[in-house]
Simulated scan of single mutants.
Amino acid sequence: MATTPMESSAAPAVQDAPGGRSRRDVSTAPLVAPSVILLFLWMIVPLAMTLWFSFQYYNLLDPTSGGFAGIENYTYLLTDPSLWTAMGNTLLLVFWVLVITVGLGTLLAVLFDQPFYGRSVARLLAIAPFFVMPTVSALIWKNMLMHPVNGLFAFFARLLGLPPVDFFGSFPLASIVVIVAWQWLPFALLILLTAIQSLDNEQKEAARMDGAGPVSMFFFIILPHLGRAISVVIMIETIFLLSVFAEIYVTTSGGPGLASTNLAFLIYLRALREYDIGGASAGGVIAVVLANIVAVFLVRSIARNIAD
């Protein structure tokens, strides 16, 4: 007897899995569970320990004199002017590095998209600094370029009859910005160059036929096309720039005074210079909250940009 369409649509799934089970009954949860549990423990255990120590009196010089501190670590830290100085330096560092990397990266991406002799070698050399370790790049800038006596910049200054500049003493935060921007510029260039290459050539040819010049092409075709890529670059760089540490440790050690101390370096000072684990843990919690606020804001902005 022939089956009706309703009966055929309600028929059970095909029994093609081993043991007579249907494909839709096979669950992948047992396969995914170990990695999910490991990742969960990887994140939760350090965060839980940081929260615990942030509410404790705990000093490495005298671990026996501990106890519950309540919110005293947070109160002391939030009323300490060094915290607000470090947070201000952190925001300035992130802002100026983003301005340099996104702005210069966009211009370089447009340049490297043009055909010229040796373009492949030029692209390789432009991307190479991203693979240099932060400690190594900081040492190069400190001892070979910005050194007030033996540095390359001091050599050129003497050639021009100008006094050499002690960059890390006179402009500490600006020097850190230059070093970090030099490291992250290749990343922005790579992402933006890839986005430019995905632009439809027919659209560019049509604009040229309509009389659009290079400036009009850049502002009305290329730049709008790069909107999503720029948002991704800003989000990824911001997350990493909030935790810049090696460049500051190698070059200025946060000084002079607190002129180049960011939030990550301030936590290091509390933990391993003052041995105050409770205060450093409270600073770590504040850093996590700040990073999550920035991340949520950036993710929403990018989602809105992609939806548009």
Rank of each mutant, 00 (worst) to 15 (best):
P134L: 14
N150H: 14
R123E: 09
F155G: 07
S137C: 14
F156T: 07
L145H: 07
Y117P: 07
G169P: 02
L162D: 06
W141G: 01
D166K: 08
P129I: 04
W141F: 00
V149A: 13
P129N: 08
S120M: 13
P115K: 14
F112M: 15
S170A: 11
R158A: 10
G169H: 13
D166M: 04
T135K: 13
A157G: 03
M144R: 13
P163N: 09
A126S: 13
S120T: 10
G151Q: 03
R158Y: 05
A154L: 02
F168N: 13
V136I: 12
P129S: 10
F155I: 01
Y117M: 09
P172E: 05
F153C: 03
M133G: 14
P172I: 06
A126K: 09
L139E: 04
A138G: 13
P134E: 15
L125I: 00
P134H: 14
F168P: 02
F171I: 11
V149F: 08
G151C: 07
I140F: 14
F112A: 12
R158H: 06
L145D: 05
Y117K: 11
P129T: 04
S170C: 03
A154K: 04
H147I: 07
W141A: 02
L152I: 06
A138S: 15
I140D: 06
